[in-house]
């Protein structure tokens, strides 16, 4: 275990010094600051105001930028180390592949998750200081959803990193996955639905298999438990599962998906030539 923590700790230390981490932290921290400066907490849209409104906006932007940040910064972790011969030297010490791989994942998870949560905590503390009501239910739901979203994309990123030969290819694949899950899959599913080729339930199920989509729906569900803003799609979801079960699924499923991809990545890492 000491080697696992050692790898995680050193990866964390290394990441904290990088420029991408500074930019990453500034983006999320800056976003919260900008919301306060812009007076988002005083505005009211669709009945949401105060900190709830701010957190809703934060989560809507986070869903777009968090996955791409995680993919781009993580996808090169193993492939980059392999590319520039760091792996060749670091793995000449008696560290098991399991400790190295999972240690890197733990270290990287802390790096990507903490700034996102920290920005939310700053918002809550500052909001409380200004006398706003703190929507704890939303805060805890988002903490869980962000944990799940980070897990799923971290797992996908490590999976890609385990089999690509160069950093450039890894970046290309990462970008494609991000844009595919963010937009292309929805466009494809909408066109299928319009052609009436498949059962709507199947199309909605495929759509919710996308971790970004399930995150988006779960984020709305706390403000709008009936999911009325989603129109008829809400019937398919809430007829199948209760709102509580849907929220649990939206946190549990991406975590399992991330672990599955991470595990597949580990198997590839273990079976392939290391350098």
């Amino acid at each position: 275990m000491k080697n696992l923590y050692l790898i995680a700790y050193l990866d964390l230390r290394e990441s904290l010094r990088t420029k991408w981490f500074v930019v990453y932290s500034l983006v999320f921290g800056g976003m919260i600051a900008l919301f306060f400066i812009a007076g988002v907490t005083e505005s009211q849209v669709m009945g949401f105001s105060g900190l709830s409104r701010l957190l809703l906006m934060y989560i809507q932007i986070t869903i777009v930028i968090l996955p791409i940040f995680i993919l781009i910064t993580t996808v090169r972790s193993i492939s980059g180390d392999r590319d520039n011969h760091i792996l060749e030297y670091m793995l000449s010490f008696p560290i098991s592949l399991k400790q190295y791989y999972w240690g890197k994942i733990i270290g990287r998870f802390v790096t990507v998750y903490v700034p996102v949560i920290f920005a939310m905590i700053i918002a809550v503390v500052y909001g409380a200081f200004k006398g706003a009501d703190i929507p704890w239910n939303i805060f805890f739901l988002y903490t869980g959803l962000l944990f799940a979203l980070s897990s799923s994309f971290l797992g996908i990123a490590f999976f890609i990193s385990s089999f690509v030969k160069s950093s450039e290819v890894a970046l290309g694949i990462a970008f494609f996955i991000w844009i595919f899950l963010l937009a292309f899959i929805d466009i494809a599913l909408i066109s299928l639905m319009m052609q009436n080729r498949f059962n709507e339930g199947l199309i909605i199920a495929i759509s919710l298999a996308n971790p970004m989509e399930i995150f988006r729906v779960a984020a709305i569900s706390l403000f709008d438990p009936e999911l009325t803003v989603m129109g008829p799609v809400a019937f398919y979801i809430l007829d199948s599962v209760s709102q509580g079960a849907f929220v649990a699924l939206s946190i549990g499923y991406p975590v399992v998906l991330g672990l599955l991809f991470a595990f597949l990545g580990y198997k590839i890492f273990e079976k392939k030539d290391l350098v």
Partner: peptide
Amino acid sequence: LKNISFVPQLPPPIKL
């Protein structure tokens, strides 16, 4: 690997 010491041809760009 407990029993092997290795020095590569070119030192890798380790960021630690």
